[in-house]
Design a protein around this nucleic acid. Structure first.
Lengths: 136, 136
DNA sequence: CTAATACCCTATCGGGTTAGTAGGATAATA
DNA sequence: TATTATCCTACTAACCCGATAGGGTATTAG
């Protein structure tokens, strides 16, 4: 299951990508438009900022804005920040590899074999899909 | 993340698929071979039985056995029984569709658009992978 | 018939995560 | 200086996961 955190995060990002200008948009505005709890959204946008996706501006007329061009933001980046590793099992993760305690040999492990395929395909999709494409 | 339930289930199924004869194998035997908690494995095999994947035999010399030929068991079936829907979001699920409360229009929803692709690809892999292939 | 074996079933439980809330600190602007 | 809006920490209720406990029931060996 996709977490609501990721779901809301993607929605907020595409909302910003659809904006004509690069002017900051307040949490409240995004929250209202996308039907997301203000406080929850606040924490999501903050982590996106800390990870270099968003910039922010305080005070009147402030809010959040995209730092990069939407077509330069692949979904791999967004997913890894919000949802964590792409792989469904640590033993097939590229960035967060971890050996299974129970599994003596990955070469003969059925789960490993199956999940490698899933990871490769998901990775391909996330890599080839940018924020710009989702915004259209 | 893939649940341990599914992970262990797949391991147990491939263990059975690798067996030469169709003789029942006891929970204890599989548990020992695959390093899985006996009681936990017990509940997993029971649900696999209830869903028509496994048969069982009680008493001495009893255990679990595959009902069908391994090459007639696609991973879609196994995944749906143990892990639940293939889709990461209910609004793109084929068998368990559910509309999102917050989303006014699926046609313009970025999450929907992205997750449809993921679902299609995962589905293709699970459908084309049988127990027999994983066992080799 | 009886005891041993091994599946069948329900209930429970600790620990961790998730989704959301509360409340104030800090910075920018009018 | 008041207002706006982000920043930050802490907290909590609800939920799910993995595992365990403790029997009940069917089958088979002797």
């Amino acid at each position: 299951m996709l977490s609501k955190k990721t779901k809301y995060g993607i929605k907020a990002l595409t909302y910003l990508a659809r904006q004509d200008s690069k002017n900051p948009v307040s949490i409240a505005t995004i929250s209202k438009s996308e039907n997301i709890s203000v406080k929850f959204l606040e924490s999501i946008l903050l982590t996106l900022k800390k990870n270099g996706i968003l910039g922010s501006k305080k005070g009147i007329g402030g809010g959040y804005y995209l730092i990069k061009n939407p077509k330069d933001v692949p979904m791999t980046t967004v997913m890894r920040i919000l949802e964590g590793p792409i792989a469904m099992v640590p033993c097939v993760s590229l960035n967060y590899y971890e050996k299974c305690d129970d599994c003596p040999d990955e070469g003969t492990c059925a789960v490993h074999k199956l999940m490698i395929q899933i990871r490769d395909n998901s990775l391909k999709i996330f890599r080839n899909t940018t924020l710009a494409e989702l915004a259209n």
